[in-house]
Design a protein around this nucleic acid. Structure first.
Lengths: 338, 338
DNA sequence: CCTGGCACTCCGCTGGGCTGAGTGCCAAGC
DNA sequence: GCTTGGCACTCAGCCCAGCGGAGTGCCAGG
């Protein structure tokens, strides 16, 4: 176990490094933080911290830099989430409140997060796996061609054209529409399949095929809609911390374009509380020198989706975590209001 | 007027510079292109071209680099659009054909363009200003609360909740739905307003308020839907040509996040044919060292939206123009099929 | 266990010298 | 009058050596 002071030294190193982006030496440390000990003592502590793998030297005779492990300890033990100031909170709230629809909410959230953290923001659309059916509509486009429209309680609308095996009368259509709605409105997506399984049986033989087709199309839509979409923003912020190289930012940009990667990344986060994944803790290769700070958000108690930011491992964790948490909270509120 | 050979020299310079990314000198030119004249002659020609502002020297005793004006001349007079190879075409077609819905078409198009041109691709969603109404649906959510669903011929679905001034009966609802559809299905958005203006008059006094409310909501949706959305991709390609600096790519990333800027950029393009805007021809400040190659596409004869790529002024114009044009053509086909 | 001292390391900056590609100009030739 | 070879000149980029400074590790004394 590291002594209290050594932890203090580690904290100081992380803070200074995050601020200056330069390896920090023993002398500078004692000056900028009143550690009450001499540089020499700090040097001993640093040697110990390095021994344990919390910090490293870019080269001999340079200062120390935190390792992923060091940041991990910092985040877990040494840092408190920094709450936002009241004006900031108010600004967030009013900015989000003026959103007109779901797309707008997500769009604004992304911009907000990117601006607050000055990093790349990622916001997942509210997931539909826990959302419920608000309404299903069936429209005849042609005698044997229907349009299926699904409306969810999160405000999304999905439509799909269904080609029927046989012509389908207007009365049958109205019948199916009514029965379908009476059975599944208000139900969760995952609960729908058993509720409609026997529906074809109650129709005439000639319509049965069409009903089955419509149902399987509906179920497909439900499954597909559970697939998650997301929005990213603030990529220009990447250039801030890539004084190093285009080499650094290229893989990150690539990873960001792979929605699958991002979804997986967010998916790995805990459902509640802020999750921080540091450097190599991220499975994806292009993101091994970045950290991901994410959190679930939702309109009620349950998290229906995640949001977060991607930035250099050398980031202001307390501030970022605070911003992410606050934004998630307010987005949740906004969603709940609709 | 520049002599034939001088134009040839300019073409050679552009081609070489695009290939090597390095200022090109007189000797190299005579070697790589059989100009049938000596370096000294080429030097004279270059001096003339520089005099006219078509090329420039980064510094004395360096080779020449084309200016925006030089590229302009190249694009207008010296270059032919390079058609894609048959296998390429086939690949495009089959890749786009497997798209399942509009989002997917646009998404695939973006990826395709980015990959083909190795640059940043921008695709505007098919504009609705020229699209037509396929169906309007009205659903009662509560006695005085309706949901309005608009389905367009481009496959987009938009919905909106309408709060009514008074309860609205199921029969009135069915009535309104039927009349609305019979009047505006198949009509263009822009033609809708006059067609529905007198609709409230034919309803009972008690329902008139609600009908008006629904109509204004519908018209609003039509207008809003005319606003254009777009998708971008391939931002990682920016790093390829920014060996120079993060300084170069930052403003570009910023501009790319401003949808307004991009829409304006695409909007400036001609409706038919490939448009190329080079360097300072782009109004936006962050894009003065990039070129935008864009083209309209559409399901029929009319262009309903634009797509294009953003890249360094030093780009392979013939190839890029060919790719952009080909992709637009195939996307149009795909859209027409639906 | 802390501290001051000391020798050592090594990155990063600076300046000089060289090289080579490329130019502009000129006088001669076709 | 255009083209050509010759020639002197310019200048970015590279290599190298020297150095200054920040930082370290170690040690002996408090």
């Amino acid at each position: 176990m590291l002594s209290e002071r050594r932890l203090e030294v580690l904290r100081a190193i992380v803070q200074d490094y995050v601020g200056t982006e330069e390896p920090v030496g023993s002398k500078a440390l004692t000056e900028r933080h009143n550690l009450q000990v001499s540089p020499a003592t700090v040097r001993n502590d640093m040697a110990a911290l390095e021994e344990e793998g919390y910090i490293a030297q870019p080269h001999t005779s340079a200062g120390r830099v935190p390792t992923d492990k060091g940041y991990r300890l910092f985040v877990d033990k040494l840092a408190d989430v920094k709450p936002l100031s009241t004006p900031e909170r108010r600004a967030i709230q009013s900015f989000l409140e003026s959103a007109v629809d779901l797309d707008d909410v997500v769009g604004r959230t992304v911009r907000l997060l990117a601006q607050l953290t000055r990093q790349v923001a990622v916001v997942q659309y509210p997931s539909l796996s826990r959302s419920t059916v608000r309404h299903v509509e069936l429209l005849a486009l042609a005698p044997a061609r229907l349009m299926l429209v699904l409306i969810t309680d999160t405000g999304r609308v999905e439509q799909r054209v269904v080609d029927c095996p046989a012509p389908f009368g207007e009365t049958s259509l109205a019948d199916l529409r009514a029965r379908l709605n009476s059975r599944i409105v208000g139900e969760r997506f995952t609960d729908v399949p058993p509720l409609v399984a026997d529906l074809p049986d109650s129709f005439d033989a000639e319509d049965r095929g069409t009903v089955s087709t419509v149902l399987s199309s509906l179920l497909e839509t439900l499954v597909e809609e559970t697939e998650e979409r997301l929005m990213i923003g603030g990529t220009a912020n990447l250039t801030r911390f890539a004084t190093d190289f285009p080499l650094t930012i290229r893989p990150v940009l690539e990873a960001l374009e792979e929605q699958v990667v991002l979804l997986k990344l967010l998916g790995e986060a805990k459902d509640s509380g802020v999750t921080v994944r540091i450097g190599h803790e991220n499975a994806h290769e292009g993101l091994t020198s970045t950290s991901v700070v994410s959190v679930g958000y939702g309109s009620g108690d349950e998290a229906v989706a995640k949001l977060g930011v991607v930035g250099p491992t050398r980031m202001d964790y307390p501030g970022t975590m605070g911003a992410v948490r606050a934004v998630a909270r307010y987005v949740g509120q906004i969603l709940a209001e609709n």
